[in-house]
Design a protein around this nucleic acid. Structure first.
Length: 424
RNA sequence: GGAGAGAUGGCCGAGUCGGCUGAAGGCGCUCGCCUGCUAAGCGAGUAUGGGGGUUACACUCCAUCAUGGGUUCGAAUCCCAUUCUCUCCGCCA
């Protein structure tokens, strides 16, 4: 959520920023709404002040044994007037709040202006696309060939877009999770957390999934609970409604969770394989940062994600997402894309964002400096480190061999009984 | 699921028969004093959000004692609903 005062003071800048995101019309009617709201508020407050004063007088009179029935009668009218005005005020406030909750974050100045994914800017390329002297197979072909992935049976159990890992597939998924978590906790200084996989409405609103993107979520019938689409949601909300100590910042958390996404609107996209699933595993990084250093923290987080890809020796590139392609809550986002040999393209495997105070304002996460009055919103950052299913897919494709076997990346071998290859 | 207890400021904790209680007291924190160091001591200050106001302060008003309603001239205090926490019983991985 943007700061109401900021919007008021910087209307044109906000309009431009929203325009760059392709949402120019979002704030139509804002100014009128806000000014009537303020007029109403002033009226209500004035009446309340009157009532407070006179109620004090009544108290004194009664104490002194005087008759205050006249004043009480007057105040009865005032109170009912207040109630009427308040009804109108609450309506305006609700409308305004709803509008505000649907306005995306303002892009950072270093974000390229652009319309869609074609305008993203590649900032780095690491490794070279794996070379094959034959036509490389898709990871689902390899996985099904080895008997470690079974999409048909998964569909029977649940439906399309669910994974079933078997044997070494399940083992490698688990190895990846352990490898990623170990790297982030032991080498990068993150604290491991294991959060709930279902969250309530308030939590979903705190990070920005609600109210605007309900159709992307799985909701539990009969409950106001949702399955998390990413660990960012529960982990960022760990400190909701808290005031942190400045010296505790930055705080680093990493979490492994499954993620659940309805993938509404992606019918026909990536229908095969592990790329686009209703349920997938992810290791997430979350930071709570001092506003002054959040962009350094973003660079650090990006490196933490890159480290995983480097250690796995997978070719990848880094994109600076343009204004039109960024997520709702982000002020700046780097995407990491891994090389997928069968399709011959780079595919997103991580997304690292600085949300600045956008989520912190929604979730009410602040910090206090020693000796200073007041509390300031922290900056929140989140990034995948990495999407596990897609990582496994990338390994299958990049490490495949002509005979259908797959070499196990060296860093994973300690987690897989020291073995070097998965074969039938 | 059954029975009960509770939810107050950064934290702990008091709030009598509804009326200067935005809220005692303590801790913590900040500033100052004092003590040749440390500890202790003394004094003052210290919630959040919003409106108005100011170059910025000052100042001023409103709201907030889990949340939402209600009663009342007036509610942290009374009533109702909801949520959460805790204790006991039952059930269960």
């Amino acid at each position: 959520m943007l700061d109401l005062k900021y919007i008021r003071a910087n209307m044109e800048a906000v309009r431009t920023a929203l325009g760059n995101r392709g949402q120019a019309a979002l704030l139509a009617g804002f100014e009128e709404l806000e000014s009537t709201r303020r007029t109403l508020l002033a009226e209500v407050e004035d009446l309340r002040r009157q009532r407070n004063e006179v109620s004090g007088t009544i108290a004194t009179m009664k104490r002194e044994g005087q008759d205050a029935s006249g004043l009480m009668e007057d105040m009865k009218a005032v109170s009912s007037k207040i109630k009427d005005l308040e009804t109108g005020l609450h309506e305006k406030e609700a409308t305004l709040n709803d509008l505000l909750m649907r306005v995306p974050n303002i892009p950072h100045e270093s974000v390229p202006v652009g319309k869609d994914e074609h305008d993203n800017v590649e900032v780095k390329k690491n490794g070279v696309p794996t070379v094959f002297n034959y036509e490389p197979s898709a990871h689902w072909t390899i996985g099904e060939g080895l008997g470690i992935l079974d999409f048909e049976r998964a569909a029977r159990i649940t439906g399309s877009r669910f994974p079933l890992y078997l044997g070494d597939g399940a083992l490698m998924e688990r190895a990846l999770i352990n490898f990623m978590l170990n790297t982030h906790t032991l080498k990068h200084g993150y604290k491991e957390v294991l959060p709930p996989f279902m969250v309530n409405k308030k939590t979903m609103t705190g990070t920005g999934q609600l109210p605007k993107f309900e159709e992307d979520l799985f909701k539990i019938e009969g409950w106001e609970y949702y399955l998390i689409p990413t660990a960012e949601v529960p982990v960022t909300n760990i400190h909701a409604d808290e005031i942190l100590d400045e010296e505790d910042l930055p705080i680093y958390y990493t979490a492994f969770t499954p993620c659940f996404r309805s993938e509404a609107g992606s019918h026909g996209k990536d229908t095969r394989g592990l790329i686009r699933q209703h349920q997938f595993n992810k290791v997430e990084m979350v930071k709570f940062s001092h506003p002054d250093t959040s962009y350094d923290e973003l660079e650090g987080m990006l490196q933490n994600a890159e480290t995983i890809l480097q250690e796995l020796d997978l070719p990848y590139r880094v994109l600076n997402l343009c204004t039109g392609d960024m997520g709702f809550s982000a002020a700046k986002t780097y995407d990491l894309e891994v090389w997928m040999p069968e399709q011959g393209v780079y595919r997103e495997i991580s997304s690292c964002s600085n949300c600045e105070d956008f989520q912190a304002r929604r979730a009410n996460i602040r910090f206090k400096s020693k000796g200073k009055k007041g509390a300031t919103h922290v900056h929140t950052l989140n990034g995948s480190g990495l999407a596990v299913g897609r990582t496994l897919a990338a390994i299958l494709e990049n490490y495949q061999q002509p005979d259908g076997s797959v070499v196990i990346p060296e860093v994973l071998r300690p987690f897989m009984g020291g073995r070097e290859v998965i074969e039938k």
